[in-house]
Design a protein around this nucleic acid. Structure first.
Length: 867
DNA sequence: CGGATCGAC
DNA sequence: CTATGTCGATCCG
């Protein structure tokens, strides 16, 4: 125990560093004291972009602290008193529920990667080494730590601290293998143990200890490994000698000069059998046994903590690191004593920022955290202060939760500056490809794509977009990601986007149920004719056969069940309620939705339908706004190959508003929640007219028209194919029915060339999509939008992008493209960006577009949009 | 929902 | 020259 205390005193960071530096005379290496270390780091750091950004972040934290302090000032004594009572009430409750009955162990491999590398390359043993690269280190050995070389430090700075430092590249396969070996041992003590990364794990050994009491001695006897397969036999024997003599054991690998801790009660060990050791039945003994076995098996040392819960166990394992262990006995006072002077920073979950904020409140140790509990409850969020309270009471989780389902998957890369759109797009595609591959390994599909960018000033931005269908393939992800990227590129235009990191993340994974739903063929959906939605499709004879052909397999399908449930619902409840229930049936968090819906309902005093059926994927989409739906449809469409053109036209509608698809195909979409405009377009040709059979008067009817071929000839794989054909790359809805008539366009104002294809009402806050870069321009007016397009054109994007053969995006040719401006430009509008001429085209953006639109010719050109 | 931030390994 | 990659959680608007 004396040993433990000594080490525990010196394990505080500052002391440790200092001591190590002073004590180290081996290998002719000197460590550095903290001052020197800081000085060197500062010199290497200051003036760099990285440092500038660190300063900036620091300022932000300071601002947060300032705000917090202002908040604190406003707190009255009265409030504080009240809070004190409430919190203390909670404290009593928490104390009553304090659970000390579990024995949780935290195992932490010492300097794991570095230790593995040293083990496998004896030449490194005596040297300061770090694992990682010149730009970033993952870990360092204890030699190197004396010089201040630490994890998360860039290699080039470490080199300045320690010029002899050997930097070993990462070798994850190897670490994984070793990790597995360790885990095999751990599983014997707790089959449900919880690994954390490669080098840590939590175990609940409560049960093991119970059983262990009855174990015969031989079951607790372990042999020293005298037949090591590697060349380290001598060390092992040396170590075993120390074990036998009850001396302080020392890792042969890491700590030739250190004082580690196979400590108490070693004399009592039964060593009657040669080269073996018997461990006792206590928690300490069991954990020593674990560490012993790990070392015998892998030649690596581990530290461990034993405590009544995970939080304490984790802090314990840090307490006597390296190659040591510590236990908090399961008594309330032992716990509180451990926490008494413990700096809050040692607590898992309290990082740099929280530490600084609490320090501003005069809180450094856990007991201070407890003393300030009332104040904290007034300053921090419920979640935060409750967490603080748990910490200060030493409460934590007493069981090991299996890590649940993955919530996101991402990939990101750092590189030297990339500033051309071309490179950025192809990089983006690459990331999407990698990510898609990983996603498919786990069979995941997600609805949210997040793009992460770090510019050369180290400023990080993330941009996310949630689509209503889910994505998993490279194309699908890229379709979303590239738009996000495009928006960012545009946002800094005409300057190039200068980035040093890009990442793509997919989250919002489908649940099992949703996966099923998605996989269902739409035929079963179409059969119903009873779906709620603004679009209903009811196959006419011509298509009936096809629609029903594939439906056999789906009888009693998910859809059918849903339908049945819906009908049941509507019969059993009042009409109003019924509607609500129907709408929300598939919506897991209807709160906002409800509000929104009711609002609209009131204002229009009519049936409002906020569930849309996407014409592409035919999935029902509940959506709060049209923009979302638009985005969904857009995304649904893009990345898919358009094979042919099909028309959807609305045959009948009582009250609807404009919206549009690519108009040259007379596609029209109706948004019934927006305004009262009526556009009537009639379908011709072979129409698979689809009418709604329900009495719901909010229903619109559409015809599905397949112009060229009869369904049988066309032989689409499924109806989705047809549906996809229906729609063009884009659809726009007026985001809101704006009162503001400025920049208002309607179809009469547009030239023939454009207007036949574009009769979109562009109001102030419409969502405009740049025909060049394809990105949504939000919150823009037409002037700004024009400028954007102009800039976009002049950036030479088109030229550049078409040059590169495998370039994934936007390979359409402006000359032939029939892509049109939807609502973007008025006829003849001049380029509004004075800094940018129209060098390439010699035309203003609008003129280009006009020309383009005129030359465009019907359905075949559409293929160009979908590469 | 989207974005920023924190924290851990 | 040269400051990671990945994930979950939380908070705020």
């Amino acid at each position: 125990m004396d040993d433990m205390k000594k080490v525990s005193n010196s394990s505080c960071n500052d002391g440790l560093l200092l001591r190590m530096g002073l004590n180290d005379n081996k290998a002719g290496m000197q460590g550095l004291d903290k001052e020197k270390i800081n000085k060197i780091i500062m010199e290497a750091t200051k003036g760099s972009k990285f440092y500038e950004n660190e300063l900036k972040k620091d300022q932000q934290v300071n601002q947060r602290i300032e705000k917090m302090m202002q908040l604190k000032e406003k707190i009255t004594a009265q409030q504080l008193l009240k809070a004190q009572m409430q919190v203390d009430k909670l404290v009593i409750e928490l104390e009553q529920n304090r659970d000390l009955s579990s024995t949780i162990v935290h195992i932490d491999m010492d300097a794991f990667y570095a230790a593995v590398e040293m083990r496998d390359n004896p030449e490194l043993k005596e040297k300061p080494i770090a694992v990682g690269s010149m730009s970033m280190l993952s870990t360092s050995n204890y030699h190197a730590r004396r010089f201040g070389v630490r994890a998360a430090m860039p290699g080039f700075i470490a080199k300045r601290l320690c010029p002899h430092l050997t930097i070993v590249p990462l070798n994850f396969k190897k670490y994984g293998k070793v990790s597995k070996e360790v885990r095999e041992i751990l599983a014997e003590y707790d089959p449900n143990f919880m690994p954390v990364g490669l080098d840590e794990a939590y175990l609940n050994i409560t049960e093991h200890l119970e059983e262990r009491l009855n174990w015969p001695e031989d079951r607790r006897r372990f042999f020293f490994n005298t037949e090591s397969t590697t060349g380290i036999d001598k060390d092992c024997i040396n170590m075993s000698a120390k074990f036998n003599e009850g001396e302080v054991s020392s890792s042969p690998i890491l700590f030739e000069d250190n004082t580690s801790l196979m400590d108490d009660s070693l004399e009592q060990r039964d060593l009657s059998v040669e080269n073996s050791v018997v461990f006792g039945t206590s928690a300490e003994e069991a954990v020593k046994e674990i560490r012993f076995r790990i070392e015998q098996k892998t030649q690596l040392t581990a530290s461990a903590g034993i405590a009544p819960n995970t939080m304490l166990a984790k802090m314990c394992s840090d307490h006597n690191k390296p190659n040591g262990q510590y236990r908090i006995s399961p008594e309330r006072l032992a716990v509180l004593d451990f926490l008494k002077d413990l700096p809050i920073r040692k607590v898992p979950g309290i990082g740099k920022v929280t530490e600084k904020m609490l320090k501003a409140l005069g809180i450094v140790t856990c007991s201070e955290l407890y003393q300030q509990r009332a104040l904290l409850s007034l300053i921090f969020s419920e979640v935060s202060w409750r967490n603080f309270l748990d910490i200060s009471l030493g409460l934590g989780s007493t069981h090991l939760e299996k890590d649940g389902e993955r919530k996101s998957m991402s990939t990101e890369r750092t590189f030297s500056e990339i500033n051309t759109a071309e490179d950025q797009y192809s990089l983006c595609r690459e990331l999407c490809r990698d990510l898609a591959q990983e996603l498919q390994k786990e069979g995941l599909k997600g609805k949210t794509v997040t793009l992460k960018l770090k510019n050369v000033n180290f400023e990080v931005k993330t941009r996310a977009s949630t689509v209503l269908s889910s994505v998993s393939t490279e194309e699908e992800i890229f379709t979303v990601a590239k738009d996000l990227l495009g928006t960012e590129i545009d946002s800094v235009a005409p300057h190039p986007l200068r980035i040093r990191l890009m990442g793509v993340r997919v989250s919002g994974f489908l649940t099992e149920e949703e996966k099923k739903y998605q996989q269902k063929s739409i035929t079963s959906f179409l059969k119903s004719g009873k779906e709620i939605g603004i679009l209903r499709l009811q196959p006419e004879k011509a298509n009936q056969e096809y629609f029903t052909k594939n439906s056999e397999a789906h009888r009693g399908s998910f859809f059918d069940q849903k339908r049945a449930a819906r009908q049941l619902n509507s019969e059993n409840i009042s009409p109003n309620e019924s509607r609500s229930k129907q709408l929300f049936q598939d919506d897991k968090s209807p709160a906002n939705f409800m509000e929104e819906t009711e609002k609209v309902t009131d204002s229009q005093n009519s049936d409002v339908c906020k569930i849309f059926t996407c014409p592409v994927c035919f999935e029902k989409q509940s959506s709060n706004n049209l923009e979302e739906l638009n985005r969904h449809i857009d995304e649904c469409l893009s990345g898919m190959c358009v094979k042919d053109t099909v028309e959807i036209s609305k045959n009948d509608s009582s009250r609807e508003n404009t919206s549009n698809f690519l108009p040259q195909f007379k596609n029209e979409w109706v948004d019934k929640c927006q305004n009262n405009k009526t556009d009537q377009l009639s379908g011709t040709d072979q129409s698979a007219s689809v009418s709604d059979s329900s009495t719901d008067n909010s229903t619109e009817r559409f015809s599905l028209i397949i112009p060229d071929k009869s369904p049988s000839e066309q032989q689409p794989n499924n109806l989705s194919d047809i549906a996809r054909n229906v729609c063009m790359k884009q659809c726009f809805f007026p985001k809101q029915a704006s009162q503001d008539n400025e920049h208002h366009f309607d179809k009469t104002e547009v030239t023939e060339g454009a207007s036949s294809s574009c009769f979109f009402e562009a109001k102030e806050d419409s969502v405009l999509v740049c025909p060049v870069c394809n990105s949504e321009q939000k919150n823009t007016n037409l002037t700004a939008f024009n400028r954007h397009v102009d800039v976009c054109l002049n950036k030479g994007l088109i030229q550049e992008l078409t040059e590169k053969e495998d370039f994934p995006t936007k390979t359409y040719n402006m000359e032939n493209s029939n892509r049109v401006f939807c609502g973007g430009l008025s006829k003849g509008q001049q380029c509004t960006n004075p800094s940018q001429g129209t060098k390439r085209s010699g035309l203003t953006a609008s003129q280009s577009i006009s020309k383009k639109a005129k030359s465009s010719n019907s359905k075949h050109t559409i293929k160009m949009f979908f590469k």
